[in-house]
């Protein structure tokens, strides 16, 4: 699977969860690697791209989470 597709899935997962449950990086890695049957390192690499591009950011609220940046 292309990295960009993985990234798309990650973004959708985070989007769906916004306002309901904050996701941790490990939640995303576990969910996406199981859903797409790929390794967690693949998920990590795609997540890194998303964060480097600024599409997702890390936040801290008594624990670190991955979220969509505020407008």
């Amino acid at each position: 699977m292309e990295k960009a597709e993985v990234a798309q899935k990650i973004y959708e997962l985070v989007e769906k969860s916004t306002g309901k449950k904050k996701l941790k990086s490990s939640d995303i890695q576990k969910t996406i690697s199981a859903d797409l049957n790929i390794t967690r390192d693949d998920v990590k690499a795609a997540l890194k791209d998303l964060v480097d591009e600024g599409k997702l950011i890390y936040t801290y609220f008594g624990g670190s989470f991955v979220e969509i940046p505020p407008k």
Partner: peptide
């Protein structure tokens, strides 16, 4: 505030 994260905190 997000209620679920506040409870979880």
């Amino acid at each position: 505030c997000e209620i679920p994260s506040t409870i979880a905190a």
